[in-house]
């Protein structure tokens, strides 16, 4: 896919994307540094009370934090701008008079956004694990079933937990692409998914939704809770993937239709 490669070529030159990579690389290490300097514990977050006991707790704490607002922002900074920036720079005429069709350009831009999102997720996961191990070492982790998980198993479960964030993250990528296409504004494309993410969290937090909260795109960010246990349960994970796929498919279908049918003025 030449469009994907071309878009990635463009993205890596953007200072915003470079800053994002640096934040993902250094952010977790900074959190570890701050936690190392203070005696207080982030007890309000799952595994927060264990950060000084096991190196596998910190990556899960960061995963919990990131799910609340970090992940939507992580992907919308790229995907929310990838279509609207062409409007902003007046580059659609040049871009769309190449050998590639509009549909190919759409697919390429979406794939490039998804690749960047997945890459940033992997980078943050790895540096978070590294930061945890530097902070507290590779010691057994008390899981959410109350039993201790051996370091090897804990490492696998931490990696798997971060991997569960991929589906809803890509759901937000699709949402950001949709807002970027429809609004033609990078402000809406970038801020929109973050605001919608917060609204969804607020809806879930106010309660009363019960099981209906499972259709929100933010709920799957918590599906890893079922994994870090002696006997994992996979129900929320399966549902989370399904919900993310439905959100993503709807957003992308609408975005594609709008882009292919719109007059570029």
């Amino acid at each position: 896919m030449s469009v994907v490669r071309a878009e990635l070529f463009k993205l890596v030159e953007q200072s915003r994307v470079r800053v994002l990579v640096i934040v993902c690389l250094l952010g977790p290490l900074l959190v570890a540094f701050v936690l190392d300097r203070q005696s207080g514990l982030p007890k309000d977050t799952l595994f927060g009370r264990h950060v000084h006991e096991s190196g596998y707790a910190l990556p899960l704490v960061i995963l919990g934090f990131a799910g609340t607002w970090g992940f939507p922002l992580l992907t919308s900074l790229v995907a929310g701008d990838i279509f609207s920036s062409e409007d902003g720079h007046g580059t659609w005429p040049a871009l769309l008079s190449r050998s590639r069709t509009r549909a190919q350009v759409f697919t390429g831009k979406v794939l490039a956004s998804a690749l960047v999102a997945a890459g940033l997720l992997a980078v943050t996961a790895m540096t978070s694990l590294l930061a945890g191990l530097v902070l507290s070492g590779s010691t057994p982790l008390v899981g959410l079933s109350g039993t201790e998980l051996a370091p090897g198993r804990a490492a696998v479960l931490v990696a798997a937990s971060w991997a569960t964030a991929l589906a809803p993250l890509l759901g937000f990528t699709a949402l950001a692409c949709l807002l970027s296409v429809v609004s033609r504004s990078s402000v809406i494309g970038v801020a929109g998914p973050v605001v919608l993410g917060l609204v969804m969290q607020l809806l879930a937090l106010l309660g009363g939704l019960g099981d209906a909260a499972n259709v929100l795109l933010t709920t799957p960010f918590g599906s890893w809770h079922g994994l870090v246990r002696e006997h994992p349960f996979y129900g929320p994970l399966g549902q989370g993937v399904l919900v993310s796929v439905v959100w993503g498919a709807i957003c992308l279908a609408v975005a594609r239709w709008v882009l292919l049918h719109r007059d570029i003025t």
Binding site: L144, G146, F233
Partner: peptide, 10 residues
């Protein structure tokens, strides 16, 4: 003081 999570799936 300790935490746990329920299975929230349908």
């Amino acid at each position: 003081e300790f935490d746990g999570c329920l299975n929230t799936s349908w």
